[in-house]
Design a protein around this nucleic acid. Structure first.
Lengths: 235, 235
DNA sequence: CCATGTGAACAAATTCACAGCA
DNA sequence: TGCTGTGAATTTGTTCACATGG
């Protein structure tokens, strides 16, 4: 900014958190940047420029600079970014500077696979309790945990301080389970069931909808294009 | 359109396919519309207005009309949309009016779960062959199929006319496997490994990246907002 | 002199408001 | 009259070009 800074009521240091809401697409990109930076860190790389980062991803250097400048003044002009400090900064922005205990509901094929997946056993994420409504399954061990009944949800939320639940139940049960999680105090849900979950006050939902993703892929076949666009979503 | 239709070089009937590229976000929405319409069809509902559809989703009626008008002249003014014919139209636009045999690579926990998932056993999708590089696993049965070695990929592509592959292998193997699939003639890949796949000429990639999605969810916790935004995502 | 940070130009997508037709 | 279809307005996001500062 060149001019017009006089009426600045923002106290210094308040810029990291609580600034303007960052669009979801940008958050996704920050996740990717973080992953790449962790790889660089493992390779003992100490600093990196937006150019170099842009080569690793499929993005423009300008986009990276915009994203990073938006979330805080990392980066040294004329030099680039210092890897360890940028990692710390991104973790803080994304909220990854603390543990995130996860509750997993639904111990069918998918649920059992997720319970054992390295993704959910890598800091800062860890599955701390698993649930199923089937009395036959309750009490059985899965991935070092004992399957609990749905009635134990609320207790688990407060015991572990869990804020995130994972839903891996059949479609027809998904909405009920999501409501139960929200009622138990969970603030975020990762939903694997191919159904649209209605708004749950105080609880954010992200869907991993394999049918939609597959259909998106089918449509992409037609154009032969290998776009990929970073996310999608997702993903 | 009110005026200026004279210089229209587009022959009638060519509007459905081969019109302008539809943005990915819109394709995702069409998938959701289709799902809702199938539910309405099962409930014997014969027609529906954009208003009614908008209530089922979390979208504006205007968005639905725009999306649907963009892909073809379904809809009757003053009445709404006829459910069965709109279903047919959307299936055609999305490319779901034909079978889509799927090849699944990676028979770890996730791979086995996916092999048995109803999502991949519901028309028009069906897993027709499964693969693993581990000789110990080759020959073993999974979900009614026999695990094949990676060397059998190309033969399976031509035998089944498969165009889509699913990658459920560990991160470090994912890029190699994606290249192998593309080399075997696959035109689309659904990648579950949390890695960025480089561009593969002639092969579209969609990532189901649980780490990125979880991190997105963590960020959403902060705002307490239950936005959800329909997509992605994703992913 | 280099690479960041950022206003300004640009592009894409969504919403609005109403014309047009059953 | 009611609901679709669609140009125009608006909002949102991305790219560019250059001033800034270590």
């Amino acid at each position: 900014m060149t001019f017009g800074k006089a009426p600045d009521p923002m106290p210094a240091g308040a810029s990291l958190l609580a600034s303007r809401p960052i669009p979801t697409a940008a958050i996704n990109r920050l996740s990717h940047y973080l992953r790449c930076l962790l790889e660089l860190e493992a390779r003992k790389v100490r600093n990196v420029s937006s150019q170099q980062l842009a080569r690793s991803f499929h993005l423009s250097a300008a986009q990276i600079r915009k994203d990073l400048s938006q979330v805080g003044g990392f980066g040294i002009r004329g030099v680039g970014y210092e890897v360890p400090s940028l990692i710390r900064g991104l973790k803080q922005v994304l909220g990854l500077d603390r543990e995130h205990p996860l509750l997993l509901v639904g111990m069918g094929n998918l649920g059992r696979a997720l319970a054992q997946s390295p993704v959910f056993q890598t800091a800062p994420f860890r599955i701390v309790a698993v649930f199923d409504k089937d009395p036959q399954k309750v009490g059985k061990p899965v991935a070092g945990l004992e399957i609990e009944p749905m009635s134990a949800l609320r207790a688990a939320v407060s015991r572990f301080g869990a804020r995130i639940g994972i839903v891996a139940v059949p479609p027809r049960a998904a909405v009920t389970v999501c409501r139960a999680l929200a009622a138990a105090g969970v603030q975020g849900i990762l939903n694997f069931a191919p159904v649209r979950v209605p708004d749950l006050p105080g609880c954010a939902v992200r869907n991993v909808d394999l049918i939609v993703t597959l259909e998106e892929l089918v449509y992409a076949l037609r154009s032969g294009g290998s776009d990929g666009a970073l996310r999608p979503e997702g993903v």
